[in-house]
Every structure is written in structure tokens, then in C-alpha cells.
Amino acid sequence: MEILKKIQQFFSYWYVRYLLVTELYMVDTWEKIVVHILFAVIFTMFWYFNYSIIVSGIAQLRSSTTHDIEQIL
């Protein structure tokens, strides 16, 4: 129980900090939700972009260099 309460406190503390930094603290609930969704969409797209393009690109680069090295050896 103690642990659960701690965790809950931790989350509510950082949720308030997030609201304050993004100025969402003082807006209506529906506006909060709109911005949460916007943020969620943007960050998911970033994540997906990084995952699909950047990470796989780097993986390709790395595999090609290992291939080269293998050939040299």
C-alpha cells in the first residue's frame, strides 16, 4: 500500500509539473485533452520515424561496414 501511494504521488507530482510547463494547468479539460492528444500524436510519429527510418538506416550502415571489414579481412 505504502509503495502504491508513493508511486501515485510521484506521478501526480510530475503530472502537475508537466501541466505547469506547458501552460495546460490553467486551461479547460477538453483543451488539455486536445493538447495531450496532439503531443501523443507528435511523439508517436517521432518515435515511429526514428524507429523505422533512423534505426534501420543505422542498422544497414553498420551491417554494410561489417560486411566491408569482413571482405578486407
Binding site: T22, E31, V35
Partner: peptide, 17 residues
């Protein structure tokens, strides 16, 4: 930077409103 982003969000929400 965060202060300006926050202001931008507020203005945007005001505009939508």
C-alpha cells in the same frame, strides 16, 4: 524555450476556442 512553447500553446488554444 519552454516558456515560449507554453505561451504558444496557450495562444493556439485561445485561437481554437
Amino acid at each position: 524555450a519552454l516558456t515560449h512553447v507554453g505561451l504558444y500553446i496557450l495562444m493556439f488554444l485561445g485561437f481554437v476556442n
